[in-house]
């Protein structure tokens, strides 16, 4: 697709533009925000517990979103928690996309018994809901960020594999693949330099939609204290923690809750917009 057409479509897709702006703002805040704040995410102060949000009345030196039960600055924890969420979600999606695509291409291209085995493997993973798979694996393998990334990626690669496999099966019978075979190209070459470039569009769309979903799943795990462990902040464990004090100090759940909602909303808008742009026939 021509670059100008792509850019024009981007500018004309309200979903994409809203999503892109929200995601860009979140990235800017999460990456650069903590440098402007004087607090550390785990720095507690017993004289400053449960401070109400002060806004910008004291500039950046005050507790803009208040403090929690240990006197930790909520905004600092929110931004650092956001860093964890984004880094985890992006690494998970990268791993699941790479693994899912390779498996999908191999299944679709090889066909036969290899295809059957990979597809049954997908069925098995699909038969256990993502959250349950993640909970059980975290409980058995132990809780750590590496395990968290591995488990979330393992729960999510299946869709990518299935989509790729179905596309490869169609492509396999097309003339350019037959031409490569007759020229004596190796299977590896055909799979990864001939077929791969033709199946990337649905993968990009799927990946962009998976980021929001992964953030939600990570938040749910952290909420159930099977994800990121305190004192390291994450939006999920901040909500779980703030729930205890919700009736008197509602900002402790509202800050991470609203951040979580806007972040996922931004990625979902971006993903939907991207699909409209890259695959206009399937507008829905």
């Amino acid at each position: 697709m021509k670059k100008q057409i792509l850019i024009r479509r981007m500018l004309h897709s309200p979903f994409f533009m809203v999503g892109a702006v929200v995601v860009a703002i979140i990235f800017l805040f999460v990456i650069f925000g903590p440098f402007f704040l004087p607090y550390e995410p785990t720095q507690s102060s017993l004289t400053e517990t449960f401070r109400a949000p002060e806004g910008f009345s004291k500039g950046l030196e005050g507790h803009i979103l208040g403090t929690d039960e240990l006197g930790r600055d909520v905004l600092t924890r929110l931004l650092i928690g956001g860093r964890y969420s984004l880094v985890i979600a992006i690494s998970v999606v990268l791993i699941m996309v790479i693994f899912g695509t390779v498996m999908g291409i191999v299944a679709g291209y090889a066909g036969g018994i290899v295809d059957s085995i990979i597809m049954r493997l997908c069925d098995i993973v699909l038969a256990i809901p993502n959250l349950i798979l993640a909970i059980v694996f975290m409980a058995v393998m132990g809780i750590s960020v590496t395990n968290l990334i591995f488990v979330l990626a393992f729960a999510g690669w299946v869709e990518c594999c299935r989509v790729t496999r179905n596309n490869v099966r169609v492509l396999k019978n097309q003339d350019f693949v037959k031409a490569s075979v007759s020229l004596g190209a190796s299977h590896f070459h055909i799979m990864f330099t001939q077929i791969l470039p033709n199946v990337t569009t649905p993968i990009i769309i799927l990946a962009s939609q998976k980021i929001g979903f992964t953030i939600l799943l990570e938040a749910a795990l952290s909420f159930l204290s099977l994800g990121i462990q305190p004192p390291i902040p994450s939006w999920g464990n901040m909500i779980a923690n703030g729930r205890t004090f919700m009736t008197i100090y509602p900002w402790l759940v509202f800050a991470p809750g609203i951040a979580l909602m806007f972040c996922v909303l931004g990625f979902n808008f971006l993903g939907d917009g991207l699909r409209d742009i890259l695959d206009p026939k399937k507008r829905r």
Binding site: P256, G257, D272
Partner: peptide, 22 residues
């Protein structure tokens, strides 16, 4: 639909408790 898909069950349940309960 987009709003619903972006709502974490974690946040939605806590929000409901706060709004309708508290």
């Amino acid at each position: 639909a987009l709003l619903g898909q972006s709502m974490s069950p974690v946040w939605l349940s806590v929000l409901n408790v706060f709004v309708f309960g508290v």
